[in-house]
Design a protein around this nucleic acid. Structure first.
Lengths: 354, 354
DNA sequence: TTGAAAGCGCTAACAC
DNA sequence: GTGTTAGCGCTTTCAA
């Protein structure tokens, strides 16, 4: 066993008064040192730190929060599913929050009912968070909570009233356009879209980007197919689409749906990408290793989380001054093996964008 | 816009004293009602609840924690990666913690250095959590922190000293055995193992299960190949293994590594499962839709999280009484298309287990 | 069944 | 630079 640091379970936890006594200073001075406040001599600072170390002193956040009214904690309403996207975003958020010197409280909502979001926010507020993050996957639906701390909506427009509301997108619209344009550039007459559930903001952005890309080329807009993000729903959509011989290109709103889709297509005897091209959405690296490797667009989860938290912390700490509007992260198209020119133009050169 | 509930930003937040005044009772009585304590008449209880509702009162957790010494919160040390496994476990933990009426604080550690774990636990302790969960993916290495709250190790043996230590496994050993046995049952002479990083407990359990299965059949134990959980590392291992014509079966310690592995194998002209069978580990449903569909074992993330949190909460709330030891969850082998009898026995019936 | 007073451990405001 | 005093909003005695 390793030598352990810290007091045994017997003696009571040391308080700041104990540190003060040992260091021969007042409680306030200890507080100053612990909070990195100015106007403390280096000598005293050193003594206090040493005393704290000796005693195994640990600051009591609850007491600090009560006295100061600030918690240095941020709450996040996440989605109760374990997808690559959600998880990546959460990891990014955690990192950014930690780097900013805040603690993270997490509450999940079941597959995004508005009730759940309201309840989740309430519970976060009770916990005294200084700010709230509502992460991308959020349903449409009005929520009746009024919160008095800043709220960051990551990847979705504000869903409820708040004193200060921030929004940071992941650039889904531009990504969807890029995905669709890629297919169009390859020479496909039009592109079908396998969308996420209608109620999700995440779906809407992608639909709009797809639609805009089509419109810009004067391409016909085929009817939308709707999935629920799961590979199974992609598979179901694929069975449907496979029977329509006019389909040569599909843009799926999620990598996993794209995988299910491709599977159904191939089962039905349609080759990918020779007969039908498929583009996914997310950028999970594992799909570079399936057959065919999936062409996709990469969502800038980390960049979005970082930027969003920076804004949120700014709103918490300096409510007065404004921060410049968030810059959209670059669009990243990852071309792999699931896309090719349509059968009619096989072997020809792709038509370049203007 | 929807009608909003709650006070505006103008007036100060109501305190329990305000509720007491409106309800015409003492502060202590309000406290009793809010904590569901006995000895309050139904009439008074109703009045208090009504007053709280009217005022939009929200209990202050920091004050409660300070006064009572209990936080009703649990901290989890998670891994800073966004894999399916980690994310599933975290979601399961969140749900279980929430169901138990606790709040969740999350701290990630960078790819699992002991320093990071110690720091993460410290920061959780400062936040005043009543219990800590160190989730499965944890490195070997002694950590010198002494904590005075119960600690749950999910999927790994204790990594440091604590007043009360709990351990709940995900049954990785049994799952690894089942995966290996499945391959052996199919008639393979032996099974290669693509392991996770040596320092991870998660890797060790799987290695031991694999080893035990081999030993039980008197099968030769081929040298271990080591990856880092990533599909890229699986791919690298696959290129290596493909050149060895004696390899007919591989058990990979993670689904993603298995996918990379299969890709390399097929690129090298080895068919899966005809020439080489591959079994993964985790159970991510999306891999049912790749070619070939991946045979794998499902990790019981939810069950483990639920059971673990139940134990932890018990340890927090009733330190005296013991809970019966946790029961191992059932082993679930998901047989899909990536496994078959070895080339030499193709077309024959698989040898059944005793 | 209810209430009054005394803190929980820290920071804020002001003095020195 | 440093110390003093007074709470933050709740729960805990203990008394009624």
């Amino acid at each position: 066993m390793t030598p352990v640091v810290g007091r045994g379970a017997g003696s009571p936890a040391p308080r700041s008064a104990d540190v003060a006594r040992v260091a021969g200073v007042s409680r306030k001075t200890v507080s100053r040192v612990l909070n990195n406040e100015p106007y403390v001599s280096d000598e005293v600072r050193r003594r206090v730190l040493e005393a704290a170390g000796e005693l195994g002193y640990r600051l009591n956040h609850a007491a600090r929060a009560l006295a100061s009214g600030r918690n240095r904690s941020i709450g996040v309403v996440a989605l109760g599913t374990a997808g690559y996207g959600t998880a990546s975003l959460l990891v990014g958020i955690e990192r950014a929050v930690r780097d900013a010197g805040y603690a993270l409280r997490v509450v999940n909502t079941a597959d995004g009912d508005p009730e759940g979001i309201a309840g989740a926010v309430m519970s976060l507020l009770e916990q005294g968070v200084d700010g709230v993050v509502v992460s991308e996957p959020i349903v449409e639906g009005e929520v009746s909570v009024r919160v008095d701390v800043p709220v960051l909506f990551l990847g979705a427009p504000p869903a409820f009233a708040s004193a200060r509301t921030l929004t940071v997108g992941v650039g889904a619209y531009a990504l969807a356009r890029a995905a669709t344009d890629h297919l169009l550039d390859l020479g496909h007459t039009t592109v079908h879209h396998l969308a996420g559930p209608r109620q999700w903001y995440a779906s809407k952005d992608r639909i709009e980007g797809w639609r805009a890309a089509l419109a810009a080329r004067g391409a016909h807009e085929p009817p939308l197919v709707e999935g629920d993000w799961s590979p199974a729903s992609g598979y179901a959509a694929g069975r449907e689409l496979a029977s329509d011989s006019s389909v040569t290109a599909v843009f799926a709103a999620g990598d996993e749906m794209a995988i299910g889709l491709i599977h159904a297509l191939r089962e039905a005897g349609r080759r990918v990408p020779e007969d039908i091209s498929v583009v996914g959405f997310d950028g999970n690296p594992v799909f570079a290793y399936v057959t065919p490797p999936l062409t996709t667009v990469r969502q800038p989860f980390d960049a979005a989380a970082q930027q969003g938290i920076r804004l949120l912390v700014h709103a918490i700490e300096e409510p007065e001054t404004d921060l410049p509007p968030a810059s959209e992260p670059p669009v990243e198209l990852v071309v792999r093996g699931s896309t090719a020119p349509p059968p009619s133009r096989q072997g020809q050169t792709a038509r370049p964008t203007t």
